[in-house]
Amino acid sequence: MNQNKGLFASICGFFKSLFSSEPTTAAAKAATNDGLTGVERYIRNQSQSGSSLTGVEQYIRNQATSNKSVTGVEQYVRNQGQAKTMTGVERYIQSKG
């Protein structure tokens, strides 16, 4: 019977520590209790990381500076914008207008 109580107590202790929001060691408490929110810590870490660009900014700069060839869709859209020929439907509408 005492073995069952000890086992039950250890299982309860495990779940209590698992679902507890407080750190279990003094070192963990000191590391997380610096008076800053998670967002403030994130901003501080980003500013100290040395990179002043975000991932999105780096992606945009890489896309702007890369010498990509024009895709077939881009060529088609550009050609359609430059083409001044009228379709038969457009000519019909203009002649009846």
Rank of each mutant, 00 (worst) to 15 (best):
N2F: 01
N2G: 07
N4P: 05
N4V: 04
G6D: 06
A9V: 00
S10T: 12
C12Y: 08
G13A: 10
F14Q: 12
F15V: 12
F15L: 14
F15G: 12
K16M: 15
K16N: 15
S17F: 07
S17T: 14
L18I: 09
L18M: 14
L18D: 12
L18F: 11
L18W: 15
F19E: 11
F19A: 14
F19Q: 08
P23L: 03
T24W: 06
A26C: 01
A26D: 14
A26H: 04
A26E: 14
A26R: 05
K29D: 04
A30Y: 02
A30K: 12
A31P: 03
T32Y: 05
T32G: 09
T32C: 09
N33D: 15
G35E: 05
L36P: 04
T37N: 08
G38D: 15
V39A: 08
E40S: 02
E40T: 02
E40R: 04
E40Q: 15
Y42K: 07
R44N: 13
R44H: 14
R44S: 08
R44M: 09
N45R: 10
N45V: 08
S47G: 02
Q48H: 03
Q48R: 09
Q48W: 00
S49R: 03
S49P: 00
G50N: 04
G50F: 03
S51N: 12
S51G: 07
S52V: 03
G55M: 01
G55K: 03
V56F: 01
E57M: 01
Q58F: 04
Y59C: 07
Y59R: 06
R61P: 08
N62L: 08
N62H: 06
N62K: 11
Q63T: 11
A64R: 05
A64L: 14
A64M: 07
V70R: 01
V70L: 05
V70Y: 03
T71C: 05
G72Y: 01
G72H: 00
V73W: 01
E74Y: 01
Y76N: 13
Y76M: 15
V77L: 14
N79E: 13
N79G: 01
N79Y: 00
Q80A: 11
A83P: 01
K84F: 04
G88Q: 13
G88R: 10
E90M: 09
E90W: 06
Y92C: 10
I93S: 08
I93N: 06
Q94S: 07
Q94R: 15
S95Q: 14
K96H: 12
K96I: 09
G97R: 02
